[in-house]
Amino acid sequence: MTNVLPSTGRQIINGLQRSFPIILSYIPVGFTYGVLAHKAGISDINVILMSMLVFAGSGQFIAVGMMAGGAGALAVILTTFVVNLRHLLMAASLSPWMAQWSRPLLVLFSADITDETFAMNSAKAVELNDCKAEALSLNITAHSSWVLGGALGALASGLISDVRPLGLDFALAGMFIGLIVLQVDSTVKVLTAICAGILGTVLYACGLQEFYIIIATVVAATFGLGVELWIKR
């Protein structure tokens, strides 16, 4: 490549700017998580700690729901594992683009892999080796806004008797609509998405409420790959 790399400072600012749409959705979704977690009887410190350590939107919502319903520790942890297992696939799909990253920086990066940061980073995957500071800035800013949203939700929880009249329970769905629109950009991906949506719904309705995400993902991506190979034949 002949172009000059942006300076580290410039990269950090670029990362901040690229994280802006994530922040706009993480604050309300994190806020909703904070409200629900506080209402479930989780202390403010633990509400914030979960956002700092686990950093997974749907995983945290499901865990809070299970704890509120009196589920045991092992059931909550196992469900979190299954629901968040998709990050393994995301990390694997970014790995070819990160050959020049040191191991400590990879650890720092991997702690912040979510659907949203993955969508942003994979959109500029070819630049990951050159723009480490930009990717880390994007990830850390997004994570900070997630923690902030959760903290605000926990604090405001006493003022909000029910999240439903405010439409807060739609926040997570809204974020996923935005993510799908960014990710699904080819016919094969549209077919994969339709297959995953139908399969996920059927499995969920059949009571596979811990495993529907991972099963639907693996089957639909395999189906999509089959379609792709068939088209290129």
Binding site: S93, F176, I180, A193, A196, G197, G200
Partner: peptide, 17 residues
Amino acid sequence: WLKLVPAAVLPAILVPL
């Protein structure tokens, strides 16, 4: 296959939701 994962995982969560 990995390139198709995001297109699969996101609707698998959204549609039942």
